[in-house]
Design a protein around this nucleic acid. Structure first.
Lengths: 325, 325
DNA sequence: TTGTAGGCGTTATCAT
DNA sequence: ATGATAACGCCTACAA
């Protein structure tokens, strides 16, 4: 790997001049510039980002922390983020928090150690307290996919989405409502709210399921579906969680959507390609990724004066066979 | 961010002594060590990996290049790689080649610029010529998921797997065989070989499909299935490619597996959770990820004398409803 | 056991 | 326009 010092020696100019030529910002003698560029080309010069990052400069590294890389939604987000980052000469460092707050915290250390220029975080918990460690960071950071009070965020409102799903399922004539996910999830909060707004007695009509054993959970849900007269509206925190349930319902001969109307989340390729097709809340992955990266780069380069950002993007409820009445 | 120099100033020892204490390799005065550690703790010292990487040291960065992060197989691989890397104090840089040879080549530059200690590559094309740019790298690199002649690789034999699928589908009584994928894919080569070994006249009985428009392709396949008497054996290069076909077949009322027996690849969660369940070739993702990272770290740390590595892991053909006779 | 000195490759500052 | 020089934070000699 040839260095600027080496190019300087070979072309008979000083090292800073080489630097100036290669960065193209200051003015240099055209003839010297030509020689330097020629030499750089010939030896395949590559700037050493490590050295560049050392004395206070940019590393052009962007850290990305997600709970689970293999979840299709996050995988898609990462693809978009990587794509937009690459267009802007940024390289991404990936960290998997594994839905574990402690692991998430450890990422702070690594981000500091590698002097990433910024961080995009899909937090395990969408509340500011759980993120207080990140306040230590001396570089800009922002949350995506969720909205956190007092923290720059790019998101769709999961609560709103949950509400819309409630409205939709109620309209399909569902009498009972099952939610698959955790209680603190904003989707649940919104789902509940939405049902209450419809005058549905949530304490008697809404049930929540969350079992690590997906097959067992699916069986339980099927049983609960079969026990009740009337249509059941089922809403899962993501498409992946919905799959075993669909599977179990089909095997048990439960008719979809007549007996059980289903809605997932994230609108991954799975939902489009399943039979039956699954209704799902679609997050604007590409827009969210692009927006997050651009906003981040703005913060990295720009004046600190950037106003706090709380960008809500619109989710779309894509209605497919699994909940079409 | 406090530095070793600063700690040295505060504790009244020299900077190298601080370095020695924090790295714990050389012997130091216990009392001085105590003071240094206390000070480091108090100020939350974090080593600057950038500086450490500069003078020939390790950056502890591991580059990973895949064709498509959002493909569930690669997403799973990345999760395993990240997990094993993290256990070994490595951080990963992610690059998406987008199935594009030119983009893949560009990664070489970035890996050099960031002085990654090594590279794990899932190549777009599994041949040495397409990878000649990577020979420039001064750090160890190896291929995973595919086998490349003359290059360190960790893989399952796609050709063998293709052969086994051919055998399996022939046994189920299929008379015609459809392959969904590209011609140069080793899976196709193996599939073809396997059929020939069964005495099947591949020129008349084997058909290959590869259309960017997945819906159109699926419709065409359904048409071709319906046109023929006898069972069709269908093998797709991955589960994702199989989905639209399953969908179209079900909608057209084609019976699975009686009329069309299907086998996918990668054994992603989709195949388990679809109805019908999909047969699929399972790659040992966890083992492959672990093995690749460990072998890589061995190369990074160890003597160059490491022998070339061509590690073949065993794929397993998981037979489910979609091809159970 | 410890400190001094030098260097990694770059950018920034200051003269010239 | 350009060259010296210093600095970034760390590590590896080498000397004491």
């Amino acid at each position: 790997m040839i260095t600027t010092t080496e190019i300087a020696r070979l072309t008979g100019v000083s090292q800073p001049t080489v630097s100036r030529v290669l960065n193209g910002n200051a003015s240099v003698n055209p003839e010297a510039a030509r020689k330097v560029l020629e030499c750089a080309r010939q030896y395949g010069y590559q700037p050493n980002m490590i050295a560049r990052g050392l004395n206070g400069g940019r590393t052009n590294l962007l850290a990305v922390v997600v709970p689970d890389i293999s979840n299709p939604f996050f995988a898609d987000m990462i693809r978009e983020i990587e794509h937009e980052a690459e267009k802007n000469q940024y390289t991404i460092l990936i960290f998997n928090s594994d839905y574990n707050i402690e692991k998430e915290k450890k990422c702070v250390r690594l981000i500091q150690q590698y002097h990433a220029d910024g961080l995009l975080l899909a937090p395990v918990r969408a509340n500011a307290k759980a993120l207080k460690d990140f306040q230590k960071l001396e570089v800009p950071w922002m949350v995506f996919s969720n909205c956190v009070e007092g923290v720059d965020s790019v998101f769709v409102s999961h609560r709103d989405a949950g509400k819309r799903v409630a409205l939709h399922l109620a309209k399909t004539g569902a009498e009972y409502f099952f939610f698959i996910g955790e209680e603190h999830d904003p989707k649940y909060v919104g789902f509940r709210e939405g049902l209450m707004e419809q005058g549905i007695l949530v304490d008697q009509k809404l049930f929540r399921f969350w079992d690590r054993e997906k097959e067992r959970q699916a069986k339980e849900i099927v049983r609960e579906v079969q026990e009740r007269n009337g249509r059941i509206g089922i809403f899962a925190i993501n498409d992946v969680e919905l799959l075993p349930v669909v599977n179990a319902l089909l095997l048990a001969g439960v008719r979809i959507p007549e007996k059980a109307a289903l809605v997932g989340f994230d609108n991954t390729f799975i939902s489009r390609r399943m039979t039956p097709n699954l209704s799902s809340v679609s997050q604007p992955v590409e827009e969210m990724g692009k927006y997050a990266v651009r906003e981040m780069i703005g913060r990295i380069c720009g004046k600190k004066s950037k106003p706090p950002c709380h960008k809500e993007l619109l989710a779309e409820l894509v209605i497919r066979d699994s909940s079409k009445l």
